[in-house]
Simulated scan of single mutants.
Amino acid sequence: MSETPKDLNPLSRAAELLHHRGRALSKGEPIALPITTSSMFHLPGDPADSPAYGRVDNPTWEALEDALSILEDAPCVALPSGMAAISAALFASLGAGKRLLVPSDGYYVTRVLSSEFLAGFGVSVTERPTASIAEGGFADFDVVFIETPSNPGLDLCDLPAICGQVRAAGGITIVDNTTMTPFGQRPLDLGADIVVASDTKAPGGHSDLLMGHVATRDPAWLARVKDWRKMSGCIPSPHAAWALYRGLETLELRFSRMCDSAAVIAPVLAAHPAVRSARFPGLPSDPSHNLAAAQMERFGFLIGLDLGTEARAEQFINTSNFLRPATSFGGVHSSAERRARWGDDVSAGYVRLSVGCEPVDVLMQDLVDSLGRLED
């Protein structure tokens, strides 16, 4: 395929993604991406430079990786889930005697992977809260894993400053950009060495697939991640890769709608008397607002609400007509869950609200109505 221009703005990248593959088609070839499910390829003679085996090569993955690379402005490796992407990046960059710093308030499965598996292989694991992750410096850390905004608390940290400090100390940064996508935040442009993301969320968008990816501009790290995928067998399904490719074609449109709606809804919910406190980087009163305005393209579609008690949180979620009570986020359907049920360090009444693609006035009225029904 042809080279993607390196100076594209986000909207130009959205357009480029839609037509990049099409420019290389021959007459009569399908415009829609085909699904290639073969585990074997016709391979007479010298196997060099040809697809060889389904654990290593797949044209559907490769088309997806081309599309992801347009959005990230970096080579990408597709993996079968967000945690597969995180695992690939961590296992490719760590080993016995290495030191890893992870956020204590980030996605809990990353912490479990680090403490129960990486630590067992001789990796020293340290945890710090996202908002104060730079306190204590980064000397002797080989890998600093960052999640900003944190999931689910929506705290931020200064990406350019931290990435620069980690590099000066001799380490690398891996940034989980799941909550923001490349349309909301661009960690590689801010100094990160590696980006990981769960494409199960907004990139897929329809709550019907599991996928993830790793992006990096460093050829050595890219090769390590590809080798890890090949040797571990942690490969994506061609069907899931095809579904994600289709989802990426509408990501810019959906993400814009979701962020626009969240920006309208957040101040209304924050001011509601039933809400004890609210977190949304787009609120001028949010402690992360200034930092978000400096390093994020959009403020995102996630809103944190503290409704005081478990009962009130569950009532709010379950009595709303336009909220699906479900884990995960980023789908076209608005969803919410009480995150303390998974052991996250948040209050019992904390709700992570994922704003979807419903008409904003209808959704907002439904949420306000649900808040109005809460019992003291």
Rank of each mutant, 00 (worst) to 15 (best):
G184S: 05
G153L: 11
G28Q: 12
R217H: 04
Y245D: 08
E65N: 12
L33Q: 02
S354V: 00
R338W: 06
A63S: 10
L156Q: 05
R373G: 11
C157D: 03
S115P: 04
G343M: 05
R341C: 07
L90Y: 04
N9M: 10
H42G: 06
D155V: 00
I235Y: 08
I235S: 08
G45P: 13
V125D: 01
P273E: 13
L222H: 14
T216G: 04
L68V: 04
M83D: 08
L113E: 15
I162Y: 02
V109N: 09
E16C: 13
I86C: 11
L64Q: 03
Y108M: 10
A241P: 07
P51R: 04
H42Y: 14
P187C: 10
E337D: 10
P10L: 05
H19A: 13
A326P: 01
P287N: 04
E147F: 09
L283R: 03
L353A: 10
G247Y: 04
S132W: 00
V112Q: 15
R257Q: 11
P129A: 03
A220F: 14
S285F: 07
A96Y: 11
A85Y: 00
S104L: 07
R339G: 03
L363W: 11
P44H: 12
Y107F: 13
M211H: 06
E3P: 01
L11Y: 13
P160K: 13
R373Q: 12
L307C: 02
M83G: 08
L11P: 06
P219I: 06
D189G: 11
G95M: 02
E135S: 13
L253Q: 07
A161H: 08
F322K: 14
E72S: 02
R224A: 02
S12R: 15
N151L: 15
L291P: 05
P5K: 15
L100K: 03
L18D: 15
M40D: 15
S285L: 06
L305S: 00
A134P: 01
V195Q: 01
D260K: 15
L371H: 13
D376V: 04
A266S: 06
T126C: 05
N318K: 01
L17H: 09
L11M: 10
G343W: 06
V225E: 00
A271Y: 03
A202T: 03
A292P: 04
G349C: 03
S104I: 02
L90N: 04
V362F: 14
H20I: 03
E297F: 02
P325K: 08
G308C: 06
R338N: 04
A270T: 08
L302M: 12
F117R: 03
Q165I: 07
Y108E: 09
F41D: 12
S261D: 14
G330K: 00
V275C: 08
F280W: 10
P325F: 14
L374H: 01
D193Q: 02
T126H: 10
G171H: 06
A270C: 01
R312F: 00
T250I: 00
A78L: 15
G205P: 05
A169D: 14
A161F: 14
L269G: 10
V102L: 09
Y245W: 05
A278M: 05
T327V: 10
L209T: 10
H19I: 14
T181Q: 10
G45A: 13
K6S: 12
T4K: 09
I317V: 11
P75T: 07
G54K: 02
A215T: 02
A292M: 06
L253F: 15
L100Y: 02
G122M: 04
A197S: 15
V77H: 08
